[in-house]
Design a protein around this nucleic acid. Structure first.
Lengths: 225, 225
DNA sequence: TGATTGTCTTTCGTCTACAGTCTACGGCGC
DNA sequence: GCGCCGTAGACTGTAGACGAAAGACAATCA
């Protein structure tokens, strides 16, 4: 134990900028998810490096990571290209997402404690408020936090990491579509909280599966138009 | 169309060495999975570079990728360490593996054609033969191929990639244990083929879940001893 | 006029070099 | 003898430079 007598969080840990590659990674991910870099676009290392004010090396390492996570395709001797999602791939991602979220709901139903359930209800209430106020941005953000909280309650780190990646990509593919389904979504959330509270694994799984399948269908309906 | 008049496959595509980083990646992965590099060990870039006869850069990129895939932990300003699996993490991985494999079985049951089923039976027959001959190595390899084939029949690339990663790590954690469960395993495989042939998704899922849960239990039993 | 070939530019892949940071060890004071 | 501080070594993080491959364009020949 440190004997400085200072309170734990008082010294802000000497905020270090952290490895450059990570900041480059986040910057690029932001650019991709916001469509500032469009799918299929050729990412020239030196350009990015110059634009971000760093050398090529951190850029390369960031691209490497983005590649393994499926955001960019790294063609040998040709460079990096922003990944172009196909219809098929998007559908497969949705399938996997449904699977992971459903399992998370099951585990959450098995393990959740009172504090966790309270947190879910809190989020749900806020979400309903946001929907009522037509505050779409907040509602979307709260939706993400709700699902993240369930993942948290599931207590499976591996599952959480996979789900986080899949989720992010799904959101990227369907960004233009994601703002639908305000009200119904939160009604379903309520049902899931009930199932989790009752420790009903079966029902929690079922509800989450239905829930994500609903979003999937609304995605597809939109995609066709 | 090429007008050289040469048969299509005659020219072996001029075997290119491929990007150095990939070969380094595979070499390191091999070293890790075979325990030549032990968990917790500090990986010094220059050492690896010298040992593999390349510069530090390809090594760094390979380490980067290994990091995102969970094989090494990259502590800032300290370097790379081979990941040390905890009991908890291993269990979580097994959970996820069960989940992914079960879904694959379901999808396989939904989509498999005759050729695919024939391939499964072929693999199963060979596997049984290997078990009968006490050829453990071959049996293990065939087991992996059997599961891979099911994943293939499922026709979901995203799912397949996730499962491949999870599977490989599971095998790493339990390498010393994995050679058990020869005969019973292949009996269960037979059952799954039947379910897939009958297009019985429910049953295929259930069997695969049971199957991987069995392996999980045998893992745990071994881990305790 | 069309195809082919040679060259040229662009960009990637790799290597070497330098600066910053962490760790470990030895000396010094108490 | 014990603990602290300073210094040295080692390793990582970053930058810059060189060689090589791929693609584009123009000139040439049938």
């Amino acid at each position: 134990m440190l004997s400085t007598g200072l309170p734990q969080g008082a010294v802000p840990k000497l905020e270090r900028p952290g490895p450059l590659r990570d900041r480059v990674y986040e910057a690029l991910l932001e650019l991709i998810t916001t469509r500032a870099l469009q799918p299929g676009q050729h990412l020239v290392e030196s350009e990015l490096a110059g634009h971000l004010g760093v050398s090529r090396q951190p850029v390369r390492e960031a691209l490497q990571r983005l590649n393994t996570e499926g955001w960019v395709d790294l063609r040998p001797a040709q460079g990096a290209f922003v990944h172009e999602p196909t219809e098929e791939e998007a559908d497969q991602l949705l399938t996997v997402r449904t699977l992971l979220e459903a399992e998370a709901a099951r585990l959450a139903a098995a393990h959740a404690d009172k504090a966790g359930i309270a947190a879910l209800e809190e989020l749900c209430a806020e979400g309903e408020k946001a929907v009522a106020a037509d505050d779409v941005d907040t509602a979307v953000a709260l939706n993400a936090r709700f699902h993240a909280k369930i993942m948290d309650l599931a207590g499976n780190t591996v599952l959480a990491e996979l789900a986080a990646q899949v989720d992010r990509r799904v959101r990227w593919y369907y960004t233009p579509v994601a703002r639908q389904r305000g009200q119904q979504s939160w009604i379903e959330h309520r049902g899931m909280i009930a199932a989790i509270t009752a420790r009903d694994e079966q029902r929690a799984t079922e509800l989450m599966r239905e829930h994500t399948e609903h979003t999937r269908r609304s995605y597809h309906a939109r995609a066709k138009s």
